[in-house]
Write a protein that binds this DNA or RNA. Structure first.
Length: 467
DNA sequence: CACTAGTGCAA
DNA sequence: TATTGCACTAGTG
């Protein structure tokens, strides 16, 4: 600001224009205290979240949660996470050679060369040249997604080969190359951005690179995850909330059977299977547990019988029966969903346990699809958002405890229900205890929050810790 | 270079 | 016709 008014200290910290936004709403002298070195981040935050100040219930959320978190996230971003560059370079070479080989083989199967990364070109090969049956359409053409390719894989060898190729391609382009690019300088650490004002539920998001979607499920995925390592003399420590979303549902609904299961320390999917299939706890087969796990997730997302049937590959009638049994066994959940929808229709918004608000202007829409979407959001937001509230509380308390020297090390990442730390080898013991306790006590609920700890020399191979 | 569509990774 | 995100490639303008 070379010619205009001199900038105030707060403006210097958080950017021009911040004054009107913050000062009009309410004077917060402490903004400068919280403003971290990332001025742009703070400015966006103030701009986007300052309406919170006008709502009596949201003001503490803004001042005591979101503002202190700015500093913590800024620190995490600046510290970054170490990656094993030589390891990733080798992986890049291996995957490159593999992809090249598979590309040739697939084009031979197809009888012509084409761009394997083009769904449009692939559809021509699959459905015109090879005359395979069309499983599903997209709005512009014929679908070739994983679900479709799986259904085609007993009719021709190409679909399976293509699925394998896609996995390699995904891992190579989205992770291996992106991470090497992100750690290109003289430092072997990558620095994500934690976005505080993006997700409508109050979750964080991560970008450039996104470190909240590092693969873990496939074997190749775990090989990528292995590239995240601690600095010399340190370990990686991961602390994750066990079934946090379902615990939030249990607490908010107060459902007796669900709360009882959590209080007894039961495996919730096992308990659910036992309830809805009417078998004893020790008679639950892996298959019944798998179905129950799907239903539990589905409930959190506001699933339909159709959705469950698709997910499980069963008939709609069977899916309907499972859902019916679920609501009969967990009547408190049924009531909670009804009450939540009712208040959303009346007020036009829903809130998390700590009062975070999400407006749902389409909850009374005449359009069934639009309304249905708003209804699923109305159920999901209090659950997902309360989980986000809990881990944010934990992060703030942990940062405070760290200043008070209750533990040593550095918080590196937040992945929605997990915190990842870099801990000096000799500080492990006390630190573990503190982290677990602080996280589990983040919110006092009618059921316990449980945190599982793991540690290791990389983010893929971690050993469970017992205290 | 900006944008959309399809696809797929995570919690 | 299952929530919240981010990001890749192809394709279009």
């Amino acid at each position: 600001d070379l010619l205009g008014e001199p900038m105030t200290p707060i403006e210097q910290l958080i950017g021009k224009g911040a004054k009107q936004i913050t000062m009009d709403a309410v004077p917060i002298e402490d903004v400068s205290v919280y403003a971290c070195a990332d001025a742009d981040m703070t400015f966006r935050l103030v701009q986007k979240l300052s309406p919170m100040l006008e709502d009596k219930e949201l003001r503490p959320l803004f001042q005591d949660m979101e503002m202190p978190l700015v500093r913590i996230l800024g620190d995490m971003e600046r510290v970054g996470v170490r990656i094993d560059r030589p390891y990733l370079e080798a992986l890049r070479k291996e995957l490159h050679d593999l992809a090249t080989k598979m590309e040739k083989e697939i084009c031979q199967l197809a009888g012509e060369t084409f761009n394997l990364n083009s769904p449009k070109q692939l559809a021509v090969i699959l459905f015109e040249k090879l005359k395979l049956p069309v499983i599903r359409k997209t709005k512009t053409g014929l679908s070739t997604d994983e679900d479709v390719l799986t259904k085609l894989s007993d009719k021709h060898p190409l679909p399976k080969r293509l699925m394998d190729y896609r996995e390699i391609q995904k891992m190579q382009s989205t992770y291996v190359e992106a991470l090497l690019e992100a750690a290109k300088g003289d430092e072997d650490r990558v620095h994500t951005s934690f976005n505080q004002t993006v997700a409508a539920t109050g979750r964080l998001s991560s970008s450039s690179p996104n470190l909240q979607n590092i693969p873990i499920r496939s074997e190749l995925g775990r090989r990528i995850r292995r590239c995240f390592i601690p600095k010399a003399g340190h370990i990686l420590l991961s602390a994750d909330y066990s079934q946090i979303d379902l615990r939030m549902l249990a607490h908010m609904s107060g459902d007796e059977a669900m709360c009882r299961a959590f209080r007894a320390g039961e495996d919730i999917h096992n308990a659910t299977a036992s309830e809805i299939f009417g078998v004893k706890r020790d008679q639950v087969t892996p298959e019944l547990r798998r179905i129950s796990k799907s239903i539990n997730f589905g409930i959190v997302y506001g699933m339909s019988a159709f959705g469950l049937s698709q997910q499980l590959g069963i008939s709609r009638q069977d899916a309907e029966q499972h859902i019916k049994n679920y609501f009969e066994r967990y009547p408190g959940v049924t009531t909670w969903i009804e009450k939540t929808l009712e208040s959303a229709r009346k007020d036009g918004f829903v809130r998390t346990l700590l009062g975070r608000i999400r407006y749902l202007p389409e909850i009374n829409s005449q359009n069934g699809a639009v309304r249905g979407f708003a209804e699923r959001t109305a159920m999901n937001t209090p659950i997902q958002g309360t989980s986000a509230d809990a881990i944010k509380v934990a992060m703030i308390r942990l940062a405070k405890e760290q200043v008070e020297q209750r533990w040593r090390g550095t918080m590196l990442l937040q992945v929605h229900d997990e915190l990842v730390f870099e801990i000096p080898r000799d500080a492990a013991k006390d630190t573990q205890r503190t982290i677990k306790t602080v996280m589990e006590e983040a919110l006092k609920l009618s059921i316990p929050l449980v945190v599982d700890l793991k540690s290791g020399q990389n983010w893929a191979e971690m050993t469970a810790l017992k205290l």
